[in-house]
Every structure is written in C-alpha cells, then in structure tokens.
Simulated scan of single mutants.
Amino acid sequence: MNKIHHVLVVEDDPVSRQTLAAYLRKDNHRVSEAENGEAMRRVFAGGDVAVILLDINLPGEDGLSLLRELRRQSEVGVIMVTGRDDQVDRIVALELGADDYVTKPYDMRELLPRTKNLARRVAAARLVREDESIKYFSGWRLDIPHWSLTDEAGREVRLTRAEFELLATLVSHRGRIFTRDALIDHVSRRDRDPLDRTVDVLIGRLRRKIEADPAHPKLIITVHGIGYVFAG
C-alpha cells in the first residue's frame, strides 16, 4: 500500500476539482478540496499538507499570488495547473518557487506520479536526519539538516526547497560537473524536456543570492555544453 499523503486541490471548477480529487483518493491519498484562496488557507492551516495542486486562473486571488504567499511561509510542494500553455506563466511560476507545472488538459496518469514523487520528497525533507553535515563555503554556512543558508554575519537567506536541493547537491559534490539532466533528477524528478529551463532558472536565482557578482559567478560555474560545477 502506498504511503498516505495529504494533497490539497485548489481549483474553482467543481467538476475538474472533484474528478482530480477522486482520482487521487483511489491511489490512497488523503485529499482536501478548495475553490479559492480563502478555502485554501483554511485547509493549509492544519499544517499537514504535503502537496498543493494550484490552479493559476482562480477568481479573485490568482494562483501566482497564492503561490507567492505560500512561499513566504512554507516549503510545501506546489504543482501549478493552468489551461494556458504560456511559457511566461511557466517561468514566473518557477521563479516564485513552484516545484512543477502542468497544462490542461493533463493526463491524470502522468499527474499522479508527479504528485506522489513530490509528496515523498516533501516528507523526506521533513524528516531530514539531524546528523547530516553542515557545509561551509566563501563565508556561507549551509545547514542541511535545518534547511537554512546564512552569510558570514549570520543573516539567513531564504531559499525555496528547489533552490536548496540544487545548492546542497552542488556544494556536497564540489568540483563535480553535473549535467542539467542530472541536476533536474536531484531537484524535481520530472520527465526530461530538452526545452525545460528549470535548472537554468534555479541557477540564476541562486547566483543572485550567493554570488558577489552574479554576472561573473565564482561559485557556481557554467561548463559550456555540459552543465554546472560548484567551485566554491
């Protein structure tokens, strides 16, 4: 039997919401439903939601605004759902900290494993062993057990879970060159898409947070034609 995870479906269309919720329940997930941001907050306040399937086109507060709010307070897994195949929406969602992005009409047989994989990663993150190491580089302190990054003055820099996973992978393997495919395996477990810019977007965000000069990085180095290497 699969491990039970709590999944929250935020969708204003009742037929779509109920159909998706029923499909997830068949796979032994505990599913809550919300038709808007207010209902989402009520469910999320319970504190045990692992993954939120969040529609972008909601009445009132749109999904991107709700995603921004979620990321200010939590690293819950978020998969954005939209009826528009818009690359700008996709990049904005990733920039705001979404873990994944699907376009309607989606195949539930594909959405289910994406949800399950993300739920497992969130659960694992919540149970990180206390004996995992703390990494130091160029004045930075990366505390893997407590999911925090602080500068030499002790100020904490906020990272999304995807950013943290990517940085922890690179820092833990200094000098190793990672392809984009290898890094996306560590970050999102998604099917690889040759046009997927997930890793590049995350690298750009990390550089802006940890590099003295993001335009001329000294820590996360691009290896042209291959991928990235951490040289800090």
Rank of each mutant, 00 (worst) to 15 (best):
residue 1 M to T: 11
residue 2 N to I: 11
residue 3 K to Y: 07
residue 5 H to V: 07
residue 7 V to G: 00
residue 10 V to D: 03
residue 15 V to C: 00
residue 16 S to C: 06
residue 16 S to H: 13
residue 20 L to M: 06
residue 21 A to F: 08
residue 22 A to S: 13
residue 24 L to M: 13
residue 26 K to L: 10
residue 27 D to M: 06
residue 27 D to I: 01
residue 35 E to Y: 10
residue 37 G to T: 04
residue 39 A to M: 09
residue 40 M to K: 08
residue 46 G to F: 07
residue 48 D to E: 10
residue 55 D to Q: 08
residue 56 I to T: 02
residue 59 P to N: 10
residue 59 P to E: 11
residue 59 P to D: 09
residue 62 D to R: 05
residue 66 L to S: 10
residue 66 L to P: 01
residue 66 L to F: 08
residue 67 L to D: 04
residue 67 L to M: 12
residue 69 E to P: 03
residue 69 E to R: 12
residue 75 E to A: 13
residue 77 G to P: 05
residue 77 G to R: 02
residue 78 V to K: 00
residue 79 I to A: 06
residue 86 D to Q: 08
residue 89 D to F: 08
residue 91 I to Y: 11
residue 93 A to T: 02
residue 95 E to G: 12
residue 95 E to A: 05
residue 95 E to W: 02
residue 98 A to W: 03
residue 98 A to Q: 03
residue 101 Y to G: 02
residue 101 Y to W: 08
residue 102 V to P: 09
residue 102 V to M: 13
residue 111 L to D: 01
residue 111 L to R: 04
residue 114 R to T: 03
residue 114 R to H: 11
residue 116 K to A: 12
residue 120 R to M: 07
residue 122 V to W: 03
residue 123 A to P: 02
residue 124 A to K: 13
residue 124 A to H: 10
residue 127 L to T: 15
residue 128 V to I: 14
residue 131 D to L: 02
residue 131 D to F: 10
residue 132 E to C: 07
residue 134 I to S: 00
residue 136 Y to T: 08
residue 137 F to Y: 12
residue 139 G to K: 12
residue 141 R to F: 00
residue 143 D to P: 01
residue 145 P to H: 05
residue 145 P to A: 07
residue 146 H to G: 12
residue 146 H to D: 10
residue 147 W to N: 03
residue 151 D to F: 06
residue 151 D to H: 04
residue 153 A to G: 10
residue 156 E to T: 15
residue 157 V to S: 13
residue 157 V to M: 15
residue 158 R to K: 15
residue 159 L to K: 03
residue 162 A to E: 12
residue 171 V to P: 03
residue 173 H to L: 04
residue 174 R to D: 09
residue 176 R to Q: 14
residue 177 I to H: 07
residue 177 I to S: 11
residue 179 T to C: 07
residue 179 T to I: 08
residue 180 R to H: 06
residue 180 R to P: 04
residue 183 L to C: 07
residue 190 R to L: 11
residue 191 D to W: 02
residue 194 P to W: 03
residue 194 P to D: 05
residue 196 D to C: 01
residue 196 D to Q: 05
residue 205 R to H: 11
residue 211 E to D: 06
residue 212 A to E: 14
residue 212 A to D: 15
residue 215 A to R: 14
residue 215 A to M: 09
residue 216 H to G: 00
residue 220 I to V: 13
residue 222 T to L: 15
residue 222 T to G: 09
residue 226 I to D: 13
residue 229 V to W: 07
residue 231 A to S: 14
residue 232 G to D: 04
